[in-house]
């Protein structure tokens, strides 16, 4: 035998294993079992969940690009108006369709409006719409989806039926028709936000419903029921926080689809109406002269692409950071 046998009588006194010390720092986690299972309290500093997610998030290149990019775009939207030499409603009679210059950074369009000022204003509008719609959608989706699953039977069936019905309604046409009627009023943006939200919560609600269905059978929800905790409290306290990671991810992606929806509508002239402007309206206006005077089209389009890319990068990185099984755990 080449090796001391497991069982051989009188095996050599071979010391078992070297007690090499792992170059480890910080608190404890054991991959062999569930992280929570391995931890004994009262030793080492503990990362809070938020810090942990942030660390995993920051590890990905996409996350970094997304955060920095979005911060820059946000900065542009906030300080842009005070930076600009022109207001977006002011016509420069000396410069019609002039290319970018020191005076007009992004050039002007046919009407003599400053493209930079208009892009910033459009960006502001688009971002307001995007984030508002995404927020309303998540709230609606969480409440309706969770209720549909939690109450089951009749309530669930009705909510499910409404959800499915709204899914098959051609929302684009309806929004287009209604927003035509509100054209020119000061509330066209708000109207658009409400309309876009009303027709985009369904898929998220269905996902939330499916997630809730698996949560409802979990013991802590059953335990709460057996402890006479009211249903609404159970939903708000136990169900929704546990689908929050999905809601957060869905929010970032919802921003993208809301902005896209808004720009598409505005592009065709159905969304944000003049005198208000948005990136979509600008694109629609600039489309005709995209080949002859590209700056009219390129700058709003570029800002839109950067905005959407950054939010999308963030969403992807966030999903990986929250998902414990993803590969964002670093290397040994």
């Amino acid at each position: 035998m080449t090796e001391p046998n497991f069982s051989a009588a009188g095996a050599t006194n071979r010391p078992e294993g070297s007690t090499s010390t792992a170059p480890a720092t910080g608190p404890q986690l054991d991959p062999d079992l569930d992280p929570a299972e391995a931890e004994a309290p009262a030793s080492g500093k503990r990362l809070s969940r938020n810090r942990l997610i942030w660390r995993r998030f920051w590890r990905s290149t996409g996350g970094k690009i997304g955060v920095i990019g979005l911060a820059l775009v946000l900065l542009l939207a906030i300080v842009g108006p005070s930076l600009a030499r022109w207001d977006y409603w002011v016509v420069d009679d000396n410069a019609f369709l002039s290319p970018p210059s020191a005076d007009h950074w992004f050039g002007t369009n046919q009407g003599g409006f400053d493209i930079f000022a208009m892009t910033v204003e459009g960006l502001r509008k688009s971002m307001v719409i995007g984030f508002m719609v995404a927020a309303i959608v998540e709230i609606l989706a969480a409440l309706i989806g969770a209720s549909a699953a939690y109450f089951g039977k009749r309530v669930g069936a009705i909510l499910q039926w409404i959800t499915d019905l709204l899914l098959v309604i051609p929302s684009f046409l309806i929004i287009a028709i209604i927003s035509q009627h509100t054209a020119g009023s000061r509330n066209s943006t708000w109207m658009l936000i409400i309309l876009l939200s009303a027709f985009s919560w369904m898929i998220s609600a269905r996902v939330i419903r499916a997630m809730t269905l698996s949560l409802v059978s979990l013991d802590y929800v059953t335990a709460a029921k057996f402890m006479s905790v009211p249903s609404f409290v159970v939903i708000v306290k136990h169900v929704i926080p546990n689908v929050a990671s999905y809601l957060i991810i869905d929010f970032t992606l919802g921003v993208v689809s809301a902005i896209l929806g808004e720009t598409t509508l505005s592009f065709f002239g159905f969304g944000v109406q003049k005198p208000e402007t948005s990136l979509g309206t600008l694109l629609g206006d600039g489309m005709g002269s995209a080949t002859t005077s590209p700056w009219v089209f390129l700058f709003p389009a570029g800002v839109l692409v950067i905005l959407l890319l950054c939010v999308n990068f963030m969403g992807d990185a966030l999903r990986d950071a929250i998902d414990p099984s993803s590969k964002s755990g670093g290397a040994a």
Partner: peptide, 26 residues
């Protein structure tokens, strides 16, 4: 199996899951 050591990366550092295991099976 002679002096088997297995380490895993984790958020908190390296986990030394198997530390010098010797085992023989006939």
């Amino acid at each position: 199996i002679a002096d088997l050591n297995v380490r895993f990366p984790s958020e908190d550092g390296v986990v030394h899951a198997v530390r010098g295991v010797n085992l023989t099976v006939n």
